[in-house]
Amino acid sequence: MLIHAALEFPVWGDPNAPAHLHVAPEYLERAYEETATPNVVTAILADYRGYDTMFETAVIFSAGLACFFLLRTRSRKDPGDRFFRHLATDMVIRIQNPSMKIPDTPYLQPMDSFWTPRSTIVRAASRVLAPFIQLYALYVVAHGHYSPGGGFQGGVILGASFILIALSHDLRTCMRQTPEKLIGVLSPAGVLFYAGVGILCVLAGGNFLDYGALAGWFGMAREAARSLGILLVEMGVAACVMATMVIIYANLSSAGGHRQGL
């Protein structure tokens, strides 16, 4: 059936296909004038179809929430055997009694049950790389107006930098840097920020997500206000995507225990 139908489809790359003639040219011709954003994809994503994108962010948020909800276990009843390494002698201590408290000394280092020694080169390299990756991610978010990029891409890169730390060191190191509570709050906060910008537009007298209405408040032209609105919502998107990436990774890799994984 699909093959039969495909015989009536327009030829690949045909500039006169109906899809190119109806709404798309209007976007192309008007986007720069109306939103001061040369990247038409970004303009449509965050402005013309900004309502879609808000729910897209909500999809990400709900996926993170679902993973958290499905997997996170907080029972302290049976953490299984715990392993520690004595740094001076390189001996591994295995503790089977779950109620036994381990003093927090610099001589003992907690470790995973399937532990393979990690290469110092990899650890050092990823530690150095991570800040640069994060910087690049911020560039991608901020430069979405002018080049391919934007909140989703930037957020994914930002999240990947944390996952890199988790991979090269271990999950505990990653979770120390981004505590669960922080990312748990950041993920809905991203959506809230996006929707909040929309509410601000309502308060400023426009329709929901009509960034042009903000022009009066900031004393700028409508196009510039739209451009600013796009930047603001992209930041919300990036925060949500970054936090959700870490949530999904942490919960999946450790089956919800957050103690060890991969």
């Binding site: 899809a19 976007y27 192309l28 994809v41 994108t53 897209e56 999809v59 709900s62």
Partner: peptide, 18 residues
């Protein structure tokens, strides 16, 4: 045509979430 790119950004995100 920029519109399918926008739509697919959404679809990719949905696919990742699923």
């Amino acid at each position: 045509n920029p519109l399918p790119h926008v739509l697919m950004l959404t679809a990719i995100v949905v696919a990742v979430a699923t």
